[in-house]
């Protein structure tokens, strides 16, 4: 256990908790990232991802405890050897996270590129179907009135159970649709 025990800076709580400066920086970058992420332009979205990623990485680093010397065995100037090492595990995790964030950003950029190639815009649009439903909802009151005049059923759903029966239902004649035509056919 030559380079082991006592070398790491992190340990119990209290004075070895996270550095506030790091956390605040991380938080600020997260703020910037979120603000960019809520935009519509793909470029801003990518920048937002990158900022957010950086911010979260700083937060992970905060969890690693106070600053220390680089986690290299038998290396570095001997006078610094008494300083405890920084926690390597958050660094490992952050490295992976950085690479993954890069890959994601690159892909989204490729999409922005393609979108630009296809349409010249890199805007995020609203979904068409959802807009349609919202419009139907907007037209609901007019729809209800129309239905109340016993007009034909909703064009989108003629089978809709909310639709009134054909006008001669009051006779009790139609309900089983018995009149299927003359002697040639014979109903069921």
């Amino acid at each position: 256990m030559s380079a082991g025990a006592g070398l790491l800076a992190a340990g119990g709580g209290g004075a070895s908790g996270g550095t506030v400066a790091l956390a605040v920086t991380g938080g600020a970058l997260v703020t910037a990232g979120i603000a960019m992420l809520l935009e519509r332009s793909l470029t801003r979205l990518v920048v937002g991802i990158l900022l957010l990623g950086n911010g979260v990485n700083l937060l992970i680093l905060t969890g690693g405890g106070p600053a220390g010397r680089a986690p290299i065995l038998h290396g570095g100037p001997p006078e610094a050897a008494h300083r405890p090492m920084a926690d390597p595990l958050p660094q490992i995790m952050i490295l992976t996270a950085i690479v993954i964030a890069l890959a994601s950003a690159a892909f989204v950029l490729a999409i922005a590129y393609r979108s630009g190639r296809l349409g010249g815009e890199d805007e995020v649009r609203d979904d068409i179907e959802d807009r349609r439903v919202a419009r139907r909802r907007g037209g609901m009151r007019a729809e209800r009135e129309r239905r109340a005049i016993a007009g034909p059923a909703d064009p989108i759903d003629p089978d809709e159970l909310g639709a009134p029966e054909a006008p001669d239902a009051a006779d009790g004649r139609d309900a089983a649709d018995g009149r299927d035509g003359g002697a040639g056919e014979g109903g069921r």
């Binding site: 070398l7 992190a10 709580g13 956390a23 938080g27 703020t31 905060t62 969890g63 986690p71 595990l89």
Partner: peptide, 27 residues
Amino acid sequence: GGATAAAVTLLAAHARLAVPVSAAYPA
């Protein structure tokens, strides 16, 4: 979002009781 994230991390770091696993890493 940012404030919450930072506060949460700080609180968590403050609450740590155990020795991190990376203590075994140098060995």
